Simulated scan of single mutants.
Amino acid sequence: VGRDGFTWTGVQKITRKAEWPDWHPPTEMIERQPYLPRFMAGGPGNPLGARAMYLGSTVYRIHGTNQPSTIGKFVSSGCIGMLNEDVSDLFDRVKVGTRVVVMPGGPPPGTATASAAPVPGAAGPAPMAAQAGPVGGTQPTVVPPLPAPVTVR
Score class of each variant (00 low, 15 high):
1 V>E: 06
2 G>T: 10
6 F>I: 02
6 F>S: 02
6 F>W: 12
6 F>T: 03
7 T>F: 07
8 W>F: 10
8 W>D: 06
8 W>R: 04
13 K>R: 14
14 I>W: 01
14 I>T: 02
15 T>A: 09
15 T>Y: 05
15 T>S: 14
15 T>V: 15
18 A>T: 10
18 A>Q: 11
20 W>G: 00
21 P>V: 01
21 P>D: 05
23 W>H: 02
23 W>T: 02
24 H>Q: 04
25 P>F: 02
25 P>M: 03
26 P>E: 14
27 T>Q: 13
27 T>I: 10
27 T>F: 03
31 E>M: 08
35 Y>T: 11
35 Y>A: 11
37 P>Y: 07
40 M>I: 10
41 A>H: 10
42 G>T: 08
42 G>W: 12
42 G>L: 09
45 G>C: 07
45 G>E: 13
48 L>A: 03
49 G>P: 03
51 R>Q: 06
51 R>L: 06
53 M>P: 00
56 G>T: 05
56 G>H: 07
56 G>S: 10
58 T>F: 04
58 T>Q: 03
59 V>T: 07
59 V>C: 02
62 I>F: 01
63 H>W: 03
65 T>N: 03
67 Q>H: 09
67 Q>L: 09
68 P>F: 00
68 P>N: 07
71 I>Q: 04
72 G>F: 05
73 K>Q: 15
73 K>P: 05
73 K>S: 13
74 F>T: 07
74 F>E: 09
76 S>L: 10
77 S>E: 14
78 G>D: 06
78 G>L: 07
80 I>G: 01
82 M>G: 01
82 M>I: 07
84 N>Y: 01
84 N>F: 00
84 N>T: 02
85 E>H: 11
86 D>W: 00
86 D>E: 15
86 D>P: 01
86 D>I: 02
86 D>R: 02
87 V>R: 02
87 V>Q: 01
88 S>K: 13
89 D>Y: 10
89 D>L: 15
92 D>H: 11
93 R>K: 15
94 V>L: 08
95 K>C: 03
96 V>G: 12
97 G>N: 11
97 G>E: 12
97 G>C: 11
100 V>Y: 02
100 V>G: 06
102 V>F: 05
103 M>R: 12
103 M>H: 14
103 M>L: 15
104 P>E: 13
105 G>T: 12
105 G>H: 11
106 G>N: 14
107 P>H: 10
107 P>K: 15
108 P>I: 04
109 P>S: 15
109 P>Q: 15
110 G>K: 08
111 T>L: 03
112 A>P: 05
113 T>G: 07
113 T>N: 11
113 T>Q: 14
116 A>F: 08
116 A>T: 14
117 A>T: 13
120 P>C: 08
120 P>E: 06
122 A>T: 07
124 G>A: 11
125 P>D: 10
125 P>W: 06
126 A>N: 12
126 A>G: 14
127 P>E: 00
128 M>G: 04
130 A>F: 01
131 Q>C: 06
134 P>Y: 04
135 V>Y: 04
138 T>V: 13
139 Q>C: 09
140 P>T: 12
141 T>M: 12
142 V>R: 12
145 P>T: 09
146 L>S: 12
146 L>M: 15
146 L>T: 10
147 P>M: 04
149 P>E: 06
151 T>M: 09
153 R>P: 09
153 R>E: 09
